[in-house]
């Protein structure tokens, strides 16, 4: 295959290249909304993508979570026991469904993850207002399948981490200066498809419901 590599690259390199059109990267629309407006836009955009949004505070979010779990009759919920959110949940688990922890490599419990887990709770790495998007940087504590496999994904986001745009989030969070995680996810609603008659339907392969708690 090294042959193929060299053939392709040498063909590309012999081509004559004209002066390319100038690319000014920093002119991209630099909106700067107030934090209130960002939160409001974030909410509207996510809602229009069929996500459920809850407003909470540092104190009330646990009650909101309890309320969500009860309203959805969840029997269990997957979470990380080691994040500060997870620790708080464990301390106040009385009105919550059975808590499950992702503490084993997926190979050891894939079947259960796919068939037995009803919901997962994750934190987020930030949010994007103009598209209504959650940024997730899955890691050893909150593996990437938590936001993919269970039918309900409950995510918590701090309003202070909502950026105007994806372009701004990249810069503000210095993505190009850090070692990127194996997988970064932008999530903007529950899984959906319009492959049949361009008619929207939700919950195709990923979560059927996306619930966002803003604190």
């Amino acid at each position: 295959m090294n042959d193929a590599r060299n053939t392709i690259l040498s063909r590309l390199k012999t081509a004559s290249i004209d002066q390319t059109m100038p690319l000014a990267r920093n002119i991209s629309n630099s909106v700067n909304w107030s934090s209130n407006y960002k939160v409001q836009l974030f909410r509207t955009q996510l809602q229009s993508a069929q996500a459920e949004i809850y407003d909470a505070t540092d104190h009330s979010w646990l009650m909101t979570l309890q309320h969500i779990c009860q309203a959805k009759y969840l029997k269990n919920i997957l979470l990380s026991p080691t994040t500060s959110w997870g620790e708080a949940i464990i301390e106040n688990s009385t009105n919550l469904p059975s808590l499950k922890y992702y503490d084993d490599p997926v190979e050891n419990w894939k079947q259960t993850l796919f068939e037995g887990i009803e919901a997962a709770f994750t934190s987020t790495y930030g949010g994007i207002a103009d598209t209504g998007t959650l940024i997730l940087w899955p890691d050893t504590q909150e593996p990437r399948m938590m936001s993919l496999v269970p039918p309900v994904h409950i995510a918590v986001i701090e309003k202070s981490k909502i950026y105007n745009s994806f372009a701004e989030a990249l810069k503000a969070q210095h993505w190009n200066e850090t070692e990127l995680p194996a997988n970064i996810l932008l999530i903007s609603g529950p899984s959906k498809s319009a492959d049949i008659e361009q008619t929207l339907t939700y919950g195709v392969h990923g979560p059927k419901e996306l619930v966002v708690i803003m604190v």
């Binding site: 103009d130 890691d139 050893t140 593996p143 995680p181 194996a182 997988n183 903007s188 529950p190 899984s191």
Partner: peptide, 24 residues
């Protein structure tokens, strides 16, 4: 493509499963 401001998922893959990661 479809008039969406963004798709439901943007999936950015930079490596295979890292040490101590539990999936991927």
């Amino acid at each position: 493509a479809t008039g969406q401001p963004i798709t439901t998922y943007v999936n950015m893959i930079s490596s295979p499963r890292k040490p101590n990661e539990k999936d991927g």
